[in-house]
């Protein structure tokens, strides 16, 4: 395993800047997740690390060595592609064994067999080892693709949305499993996803990508609690953060330049049901809202509220739906608001 460094890496396709001056330092054994919407440049960033694309500017270092001009085969990386790129004419077993049959490894047949079977257990595909790789479901194919990466012991693992095609249950299982395997191997892993839960649960650090730029890099907690702009704040949190003009909340002490405030759903408490905010409530950030709809999710209820022209969402306890009806008025109190200026940049007050 090794550390990986991107230094001011840029890549353009004709007029489109896919990756724009990205710098990241990934420590040995670190799990870094790049999070961003489709088209943010996540795949391109991974391909730059793998050597499948050549950057216009900047350099890529693996284990302290500048590998910018190196071919993929010289870089000692393993890659899980977004579209599970199995070798369709080979069996599952041969797919898993393929990377081991490189002259870079000097394994004999029984060592390869043992390694393949061990990895097949890890990704829970052992029972299909002798299937044709095209006779698998999408989820099974993706597990084989992950297994093909894990079968080697590369300097760095690169994974491009490896779980996005799996069903929810398997995704949850593999999320935990992948994190465990990574810890166990002490693997350096650069992982790409658009799924915030994957990012939050697995990452040591998350990098937020938007239009090719690395907007923020930090631990999941830093990114969640201390976002640098509206875009990052809105990317994490389910339901998404409530964004309101500062003027909507009465009596707030917002910083001078702030124009938007963001309040996460868990920071918006219902303090009075069936009542309007009255003058003798002392807390500063209070607001009256009308309940429009309750979404029952089992462990929690999402309250969709209307506040003048604005819609907001907050959480209520499990049985709140028995106590209030759509149309009822309620009073809310906001805590820990985040402020943003006109350009969406964070204003710290």
């Amino acid at each position: 395993m090794a550390n990986v460094t991107l230094r001011g890496v840029s890549k353009r396709f004709k007029n489109l800047v896919a990756v724009d001056d990205v710098s990241i330092d990934i420590a040995d054994g670190e799990f870094v997740v790049l999070l961003g919407p489709t088209g943010a440049g996540k795949t391109t960033t991974l391909r730059l690390v793998a050597g499948l694309e050549k950057p216009e500017a900047g350099s890529v270092l693996i284990d302290g060595k500048d590998v910018t001009g190196f071919a993929p085969s010289q870089r000692d990386v393993s890659f899980v592609f977004q579209q599970y790129s199995l070798y369709p004419h080979l069996s599952v077993r041969d797919n898993l064994a393929f990377p081991l049959k490189s002259p870079a490894h000097s394994l004999n047949a029984s060592q390869i067999k043992a390694r393949v079977e061990h990895v097949a257990e890890l990704v829970q595909i052992a029972h299909k080892l002798d299937n044709r790789s095209t006779a698998l479901s999408g989820g099974e194919m993706q597990r084989v693709a992950i297994g093909r990466a894990l079968v080697r012991d590369p300097a760095v693992f690169l994974m491009d949305e490896p779980l996005s095609s799996l069903d929810a249950k398997l995704r949850g299982d593999l999320r935990v499993e992948l994190k465990r395997i990574q810890k166990e191997l002490g693997a350096t892993l650069l992982y790409v996803t658009h799924d915030q839960i994957e990012a939050m649960t697995m990452a040591d650090r998350i990098g937020i990508l938007d239009e090719g730029r690395l907007v923020q890099l930090g631990t999941p907690r830093e990114i969640y609690e201390d976002p640098v702009n509206v875009h990052v704040a809105a990317r994490l949190g389910q339901p998404a953060i409530n964004l309101l003009p500062v003027s909507v909340m009465g009596g707030v002490s917002a910083p001078q330049s702030a124009s938007t405030m963001g309040i996460r759903t868990e920071h918006l408490d219902v303090i009075g049901q069936g009542t309007r905010a009255s003058d003798n409530d002392d807390a500063a950030m209070k607001v009256a809202a009308t309940l429009e709809r309750v979404e029952f999710l089992g462990d929690q209820n999402r309250l969709h509220l209307r506040m003048g022209d604005h819609r907001i969402v907050t959480l209520g306890d499990g049985d709140i739906e028995y106590r209030i009806q759509p149309g009822s008025e309620m009073t809310l109190r906001a805590r820990n608001a985040l402020y943003f200026d006109q350009n969406g940049e964070r204003v710290r007050g």
Partner: peptide, 20 residues
């Protein structure tokens, strides 16, 4: 992408030809 996968898997040109 099959060739890209093989390249990352460090298959030589010769092996890429014969096995893919």
């Amino acid at each position: 992408y099959i060739y890209e996968a093989a390249e990352v898997d460090r298959a030589s040109n010769w092996r890429r030809f014969w096995s893919i």
